[in-house]
């Protein structure tokens, strides 16, 4: 029998082509999406078009990298999803209703999958509430500040440079972060963020809030 993908001869009963590696099983495993098996012979035209903006340089130091590389070889910045060409435009997420009242609206139904995130600090995990906008800061009863993620238990104080409303994570189909004009600033992947400028944040990115060192994970 021949491999339907590269036409190399393969022994009967083989599960993968020994040449091109293509699966010879007709059915995809359970849980896999309904994508067609590689039936057509390879031709370069079938590949996704080149990314419009080159995008395969480290956002932190500009060193070029191969798509899929997790960390910059030069400066160590996280590259997960940074500038990796997407095979298709990302489907637009449903716009979230803006809260009208200052009180945070409880979400009508739990949002599954991609909107979940967590922060790690010194081996401890801080759960990020499942909301489209998450304020990170330091609770202060006197001034009525109650951020969604209160870093006080993890060492946040005026001495460690954490503002009451320090930074904000926003879900836009992917997570972005902005510094809320904090006193001591927010650093993402070693770069200081300009106030109120939304910047994509990727899983594994180092994040410094005041002087607290965190790592962001979208999971």
């Amino acid at each position: 029998m021949n491999c339907p993908s590269c036409h190399a001869q393969v022994p009967d009963g083989a599960s993968f082509c020994d040449q091109c590696g293509a699966s010879l099983a007709s059915a995809m495993p359970p849980g896999a999406p309904a994508v067609p098996a590689p039936a057509a012979p390879m031709s370069p035209q079938q590949f996704a078009p080149a990314p419009a903006s080159g995008g395969t340089t480290c956002p932190s130091c500009g060193t070029p990298f191969v798509p899929g590389t997790a960390f910059c070889d030069n400066c160590g910045a996280s590259l997960t999803n940074a500038g990796v060409p997407q095979p298709q435009p990302i489907p637009q997420p449903q716009p979230f209703p803006q809260p009208v009242a200052p009180m945070p609206q409880p979400f009508p139904q739990p949002v599954s999958g991609a909107m979940t995130a967590r922060l790690m600090i010194g081996g401890q995990t801080i759960a990020v509430p499942q909301k489209p906008e998450v304020v990170i800061g330091r609770a202060d009863v006197a001034s009525g500040s109650f951020p969604d993620v209160d870093l006080t238990p993890y060492g946040a104080s005026p001495q460690t440079g954490v503002s009451r409303v320090h930074a904000k994570l926003t879900w836009q189909g992917a997570w972005v972060i902005e510094d809320m004009n904090s006193t001591n600033g927010t650093m993402l992947r070693g770069q200081k963020l300009a106030p109120h400028q939304k910047t994509p944040i990727n899983t594994g990115d180092p994040l410094i809030v005041g002087t607290l060192q965190l790592t962001f994970y979208a999971s």
Partner: peptide, 9 residues
């Protein structure tokens, strides 16, 4: 580069 599908790499 490869087309969509499952491969033993």
């Amino acid at each position: 580069p490869r087309n969509e599908g499952r491969y033993r790499v």
